[in-house]
Amino acid sequence: MTKDRLTQYSMFDLYKIAENEGVQYDITDGNRDELIEKILEALEEDKTERNLANNDAMKLKNTKYDILQDYELETQEKQNYTIPAKYNDTRIVLLLRDPLWAYTYWDINDGELRKMKEEIFFEGFFLRIFELEIKKSSKEDSYTKDNIIDYYDIPIDEKDDSWYINLGKTGRNFGIQLCSIMHGTVSVLSKSNLIKSPRGFVAEHIKDLSNDPDLMTVLMSGLWDYNNKGENIIPQRILSIMENQDLTL
């Protein structure tokens, strides 16, 4: 966005853009030029951040939608659509994001929540993250003693409704339970679906193939022209393997 374009906005719109971009301003100040400069700075930082956060495929894809090349303050579509903030049921869901991170969101039924909070011994909520060994195919009994390898807890606030979890290990099964604690007693409010983080390393393959460089080259196929400029292109785990094995060229 150019300075020229920003100067065409009303002060009201500039304040809105400033808010969207997290720019601090003093509404009593009214210094238009200064506000525009701050917004431009924030937009430039945002652009740099987005560029770094996307690989080439995603940057190119973005050009399909980039007809404005400008800040879209609001869409042309004026209709307002209301959607609920939550659905008033108690449940927790777990989504795998990458080999080491997962995202979880949850809801607690209003009635249940009220009841718990009325209890004098109510202490709070927490998430219990399980690493599991799935011995049976049925998901229903996955949280049995036999299956649990390890677990740890993350305390949460009543206002929280989602969290990113660092799984810490690849190639393992994980599940989460939404729990409350009352007078030292833990109650499970909801159990999540299970996820399996993929193996993030080909290390065992590299080890197997270390005496067979040709085969290893084929295994890493298409990567041998890679140079160190493209950290965002290749998953970090493959990158580290390539560097450790001196496969960069």
């Binding site: 495929a57 995603m58 959607i83 939550k86 989504l95 795998l96 994001r97 969101y105 970090q236």
Partner: peptide, 26 residues
């Protein structure tokens, strides 16, 4: 094959991120 995508860093990061994760509960 392994869980993968052609998005940034090779997994779900583009479509599951602090800027868009709110949509999935809906």
């Amino acid at each position: 094959p392994s869980f993968s995508s052609w998005g940034n860093k090779g997994y779900s990061e583009v479509w599951l991120d602090g800027k868009n994760d709110w949509i999935y509960r809906h």
